[in-house]
Each structure stands twice: as C-alpha cells, then as structure tokens.
Nucleic acid binder design. Sequence first.
DNA 1: CTAAGTGCAAAGTATTTGCATTGCG
DNA 2: CGCAATGCAAATACTTTGCACTTAG
Lengths: 137, 137
Amino acid sequence: MANGILDRCRQAGLRLTAPRREIAAVLEASTDHPDAETIRQRAAVRGFTLSLATIYRTLKAFEEEGILEKRDFDGGRARYEDAERGHHDHLIDLETGRVIEFVDPDIEALQERIAARLGYELHGHKLELYGRRKTRR
Amino acid sequence: MANGILDRCRQAGLRLTAPRREIAAVLEASTDHPDAETIRQRAAVRGFTLSLATIYRTLKAFEEEGILEKRDFDGGRARYEDAERGHHDHLIDLETGRVIEFVDPDIEALQERIAARLGYELHGHKLELYGRRKTRR
DNA sequence: CTAAGTGCAAAGTATTTGCATTGCG
DNA sequence: CGCAATGCAAATACTTTGCACTTAG
C-alpha cells in the first residue's frame, strides 16, 4: 500500500523530481493547510528554492491524481492538504481564523442519506462550520 | 419586518441608489447563484448598465451587512445569493455543474452539536455535497 | 534518448482601489 | 449641502502559460 505522497505520486505515474520531493516533504511536515506561497516559504526555510509556477503545477497535478485536496476557505488563496490523511471537516474560528479539523461519523452518514434522497450518488463533500469559542470560564 | 433586499439595505443605513436597486432587482429575480459578471449581464438585458466596480463594491457592502451570502463553489468567481431566503445547503452535480439547494433539519442540529462539542458557538456553516445522478431507470 | 518537468517572465482572471464626479438623504 | 456612492482606468492578487532548458526513467 502507498502511504507517503511520493508513493502515490509514483503510483500515479508522475516523475519524482527534486521539486516534487520537496513539496511533498513540506506538505507532510505541515499540520495546517498551506497555500502555494506558504509552501514556497517553508521550502525556503529548509534551504530549497522553488518556483511558484512549479508549485502551482505540482499542486494541480497532485490534486488531479487525488493525492491532495484543494480547499478554498476564504475565496482568497487556495490551500492544500494530504488527501490520504482521511476525510475530515473544518471549523473556522471567526476570531482568529484558525482552522480546526474534526470528523463525525453521524455527519458522514447523514450526508450520504441526503444525497441519496436527492437522487444522487455522493462522491465527496465539504463542510465548514464557522464559530466563536464559547466564553465559558 | 424587512423582506426585500432594499428594505434590509435601508435598515443597514445604506443609500438606495439606482445601481443598488438594479442589483437587488437582478438578485431577487434570480433563482440561481450569479457572480458579478453575470449580474452585469442580466442588468444589461434589463436595459441597465452597471460598472463592474460598483457591482463588486455593492456585493461586498451587502455581504458585510448580512444581506447577501458569498459562495465560492469552485474557487473561480464568487457567487452571491439572498441571505434572507433561509439557510440551505448545496449539492453540486459533478456531471453538469448544476447547483441544487436543499435543507435538512437533522444536518443543522448535528452541526450545532458538533460545534458545541468542540467548544464553539456556531455562527454559520457551509455544506457542499458533490455527486452524480443515480443511474436508476 | 525523449517525454515530462522546471524556471522565468509574460499573460490571464478575478477583484480592488484612487480619484474626480454625481446624487441620496 | 455633505458625505456616500459611482464610473473609469489603473493597480493588485492569485494562478496559468509559452518557451527554451533540464532531467527522470
């Protein structure tokens, strides 16, 4: 079974170039959802210079192969995350903008049922909750 | 109670200018989720010329006042819909790109519970389902 | 060896903004 | 009247693309 991004990259028939190895490394070292520019900065910190064009092309290629998932929380820059880390949804902190990941089996099941009710086969979903931290002290 | 977009516009202390009346009219006549350019075209058909800058500024103002809601289905152009029409979620047809609206009280309740479990007060949410029409004949 | 991938700079989209002018309240 | 809103064009933000060069397989 393929676990790492590079394994899946190879499985997909994509060449394992130095930039791709670096982008994969940055993504796997990230616990958040970096955008293209952030990926470049993180690579730079690690001593690797990446062209933004390459990053965009690579992210698109990875996404098309189902290796990464694209997120668009705010309509600004697109952010990416490893698709293999298992599906989860997001709660966005309205105060800080922080993104909290969560999973809920009930939600998954319910969405499946709703899609079926509408006459559709569910192929994916995105759920974003927006909230403020409860001021319980 | 304020029902129309213009009523809420006035409530919010925004001036009721001709372009705003037109944008409101176009939105209220739309059953889909138009983007800025589409709004301009629809206004044009109705014989009203709108500057794109004005449309963008108006949409942003309306959104900030909670009159409209911004959607970003594909990461491309932002789309807008009347916030007062009651909350609903979206199912996007993967074949045609068509957007189907739906409401499900169970989903609403479940999301509320999840947010609470995470220690958050839910202030909004977006749910997008992606699917293909069931080929049942 | 050769098709896929890269970097650069230029081109595309989508959206925002400066500024002089207009018009709602 | 005065300040908010408008239109235009220029500016910005993000992403894509053409092209010549490099490199993985």
